[in-house]
Design a protein around this nucleic acid. Structure first.
Lengths: 344, 344
DNA sequence: CAAAAAATTTCAAACGTTTGCGAATGCTAT
DNA sequence: ATAGCATTCGCAAACGTTTGAAATTTTTTG
């Protein structure tokens, strides 16, 4: 690694002080026009790049924000990150992205590392294990330092800070209601992991909708998955061997819905003829697979944008105020496609 | 933002010097057992967190590496990032992820920012616009500073540095060869953007395979896409209106293959009965859609791992050596599924 | 008890940059 | 000639931490 050229190096070369060089490069008015031009030209020539690290130390500002997510391996998460980038990149911020893989220890370690790196804000989508463990000391650390913390997608409700989530409850409700209105009476649900807010909310939407239409809530029709396509295979296979088959399946996301579709087809049943299927996420391919998948649209990019805006607004006022505890709930919209069309 | 407690603060409290505090917290042997314990307990109590920024300045090491990718919005890219994380996170490195959205200006800006932030290495997947423009000054900057640069997935061939890519040529070749052996004679190709190495290599594999089997290379059967599922719709629609239909379609990735499948189905044609379809990426859902999609597996995570290993090895030796120019080409493997099975 | 040895602590410099304040220089007006 | 002013530049401190060497204190030894 070649030593980067510093302001001191330039100063030595020109037999002037570092202050002069610094001022010249920053177009400070009290610098002679000639010396300014000379210094700037030389700096350009030798490829001088200001050392942001030293500046960060001096100004106590790093222009860096941390983003902690359970995974980036699917459309929704990466859309969120893109949204954050879209807002914060023009403001000069750099994103420090950490993937917890749903592990509490990693989440905790990352929080420490980010605080140690003096990030100016943290966007966090709480990991599965953290929900399970109920440990939130790492979040207290963030609060203690009063660094802006914004929950994205998955929040910890006992914590007063900003958050941007979507309306999982109504999204799920509308999907199930649609199935009911299409004449479905035995609607199964492939739910997400226990304790996770998004999963629980969707389950609640499912249950409440069934109740509203006086349909029984059958425990045998509610099965666990972990959001991944593979995790749907075994539970749906079990579902398909019940004495009385369901006539619809509502998946906690598109992945498990697609997994369900495969099992159903392999059983020789038709979609939506025998069994209707609906998902959640409206991932790009959902419109293109066969049959195209009815799904609840989840504006990932918008989540990222709104979250970043909360942060940007906070910076703007910068009057030493407390950080916002604004909760934004974005609407989710049902997109009806072939997989649920036509009578049951 | 609360001022973080510093070593000086602690020193003042204990009426000792900062050096003592520093040594105590780092378990330096020449510190009295009692004072060490006291200081550590106090530091713990007040939530002291060492300021990495100042350390970075002092040691000229940031333990940060930059990752510049055109997009993170699909399975392959995010798999690469996960691979890099998997290797570098345990080594204490932080990832600085930048999304160029295929734009040259952003790529260039990001390089500058990363250099300014004194990252210790840069992983780069060259953007589309950069290929088009042929501008590589920003890469020269990296070289000048002799910061390890590793191309992932998309390389700039005129540049002597490490790279990890997959064998796009043979991957495409094997997919087309498979189609030929299944009796297909008019095989269309949905290619990627011009000038992009991965796209060109796959096109080359397609062309060379046709030549090997004495099949004509028909310009009308080679159509442009931009990797996205939507971008396949119009070209394939055009394809379906040719006087003589193709009997197979090979997509530059799974997305466009899935787009093609939709158009073909909408035309009332069967897959693979009338037209076989193959893709590239082996994305997770390819096994679960209907019909399941034949695809060339592309080990994204492995790319990330190998790239990170090149970097880690370089650190290891650290003998001021030149950075590796090792080129790793990972094999790609054809996964045959329903969409190409059975005679044409 | 004095001197030597060991243990513990402090000093000072360094990393690269910015910035308020004072100093030096040149110029103008009296 | 000289006071006054404007222009241009340098000094020194600061950000938080580490570390070799020096200084101090404590312990050991003869």
């Amino acid at each position: 690694m070649n030593k980067p050229v510093t302001i001191k190096d330039i100063a030595k070369k020109f037999k002037c002080s570092p202050s002069t060089v610094s001022r010249a490069l920053n177009n400070h008015p009290s610098i002679n026009e000639d010396t300014r031009r000379n210094l700037q030209e030389y700096a350009q020539k030798v490829g001088y790049q200001r050392n942001q690290v030293s500046l960060s130390l001096l100004n106590k500002k790093t222009a860096t924000i941390g983003v902690i997510v359970p995974t980036i391996n699917n459309y929704h998460e990466s859309a969120i990150i893109e949204g954050i980038e879209a807002v914060l990149q023009p403001l000069g911020f750099t994103l420090n992205i950490c993937v917890t893989n749903e592990q509490y220890v990693l989440e905790s370690e990352y929080v420490n590392k980010l605080l140690s790196n003096r990030v100016e804000g943290i966007f966090l989508s709480v990991s599965q294990e953290t929900y399970d463990s109920g440990h939130y000391e790492h979040l207290e650390q963030i609060k203690k330092r009063s660094i802006p913390l914004i929950f994205i997608d998955r929040e910890y409700e006992g914590f007063a800070t900003g958050s941007v989530i979507i309306d999982d409850y109504h999204g799920a409700f509308s999907a199930v209601e649609h199935l009911v209105k299409m004449g479905r009476k035995r609607i199964a649900h492939l739910k997400g992991p226990n304790g996770m807010a998004v999963a629980e909310e969707r389950l609640r939407g499912y249950v409440e909708c069934l109740k509203k239409y006086d349909l029984p809530v059958d425990e045998h029709l509610i099965l666990n998955t972990n959001f991944k396509v593979e995790s749907a295979i075994e539970p749906v296979t079990k579902l398909m061997s019940l004495p009385e088959l369901p006539d619809a399946v509502f998946g906690v996301n598109d992945q498990v819905a697609i997994g369900a579709m495969k099992v159903i087809r392999d059983k020789g049943l038709s979609i939506p003829g025998d069994i209707a299927v609906a998902g959640f996420d409206n991932s790009p391919i959902s419109a293109y697979i066969y049959p195209s998948l009815t799904s609840v649209a989840r504006p990932g990019r918008q989540i990222g944008i709104e979250a970043a805006k909360i942060f940007a607004d906070y910076l703007q006022q910068s009057s030493g105020k407390e950080f916002s505890t604004k909760h934004i709930v974005l609407p989710s919209e049902l997109i009806v496609r072939e997989s649920t069309m036509g009578g049951g």
